[in-house]
Design a protein around this nucleic acid. Structure first.
Length: 287
DNA sequence: AGAAGGACCTGCACGC
DNA sequence: TGCGTGCAGGTCCTTC
């Protein structure tokens, strides 16, 4: 279910719960060949590693891993580990697709349907990947560090933001969803950002004025930051405190509000299909 | 190269 | 109750 704010929240929660834990063993179900890595590569890469940290890159969750240190068995601080040779460093990359979840729980808890991967941790817990719709992906990065497909929307400069869309004939909404440009923005936050910027989703990306692009850039950052503060919108299950901590709902101004009055001007919110995705906007506020 | 459209999956809400 | 339809937060592949 996740876009950038949800993945950020999930990654923070996971980091809090499993950082410094050790992956003792890995079970992988009969999942469709996940991204570039075969099941064997994944289980080989993960087994016997310590989780140095968990973080977000775009819509991906990245587990930074180090082979469990054989020297006197001490737990290294992250700083000490980074000073040491990075030999053996690797990453486990999880993309949750539409319906993926990462659950930290006791092995005694019943394994839900659609559990495709389970990592057994030295602390006695399990880290489970559950994904009914199977759009999620698991992979590992061994040689080089995973960077993600595009640029981070929260840190990009306004010049670089504007450059992304130069010469593009595709609708701005489709461009926002293109992960090779910005990574992390999905359907909800694309619609919400365009509403806040007052820009119609169908507008050609390359024909937006610099002023409009600046408004859009500000809107994207604002929406994402607000959503992160609220723990993301709409994710129902989560890995905090024993696998279930409710989330706040973001105040969606257009998303899934088809036919309801615009919160600014009362015009009914329109829904169109753009690039195969449901797209919501106010025909009066967005030009 | 960029753009558009279908493919990949399961589950749920809705109307008949 | 049961069935068909449409919809869902995301990529990925093929075609043009």
């Amino acid at each position: 279910m996740p876009e950038l704010p949800e993945v950020e929240t999930i990654a923070r929660g996971l980091d809090k719960r499993v950082r410094h834990d050790v992956i003792d063993s890995v079970w992988l179900g009969k999942y469709r060949e996940p991204l570039k890595s075969s099941p064997r590569d994944i289980s080989t890469a993960l087994t016997g590693t310590r989780i140095v940290q968990v973080r977000r890159v775009g819509k991906h969750i990245v587990f930074d891993l180090q082979p469990k240190s054989s020297r006197n068995g001490m737990v290294e601080t992250q700083h000490a580990a980074s000073l040491r040779d990075r030999k053996g460093a690797r990453q486990w990359i999880v993309h949750l697709g539409m319906t993926g979840r990462m659950v930290v729980c006791s092995p005694k808890e019943e394994t839900p349907r659609h559990t495709h991967a389970v990592a057994s941790l030295a602390s006695g817990r399990e880290l489970r990947f559950v994904d009914p719709r199977r759009f999620g992906r698991l992979s590992v990065a061994i040689k080089e560090s995973f960077a993600g497909p595009g640029t981070e929307p929260l840190t990009i400069s306004s010049d670089d933001f504007a450059k992304l869309f130069r010469g593009r004939k595709t609708p701005i909404k489709a461009a926002l969803l293109n992960q090779k440009l910005l990574h992390g923005v999905g359907n909800i936050y694309a619609d919400e950002s365009l509403f806040r910027a007052g820009i119609r989703p169908k507008r050609q990306a390359g024909r937006l004025s610099r002023a409009e692009l600046n408004r859009l850039h500000a809107a994207v950052k604002e929406v994402l930051k607000e959503a992160i503060k609220l723990g993301g919108s709409s994710v129902s299950d989560y890995v905090d405190a024993d696998g279930r901590e409710g989330f706040f709902q973001l105040q969606h101004r257009v998303y899934l509000r088809t036919g309801e009055p615009c919160l600014v001007c009362k015009t009914p919110i329109k829904r169109i299909v753009l690039g195969g995705r449901g797209t919501h906007y106010c025909s009066k506020c967005q030009r």
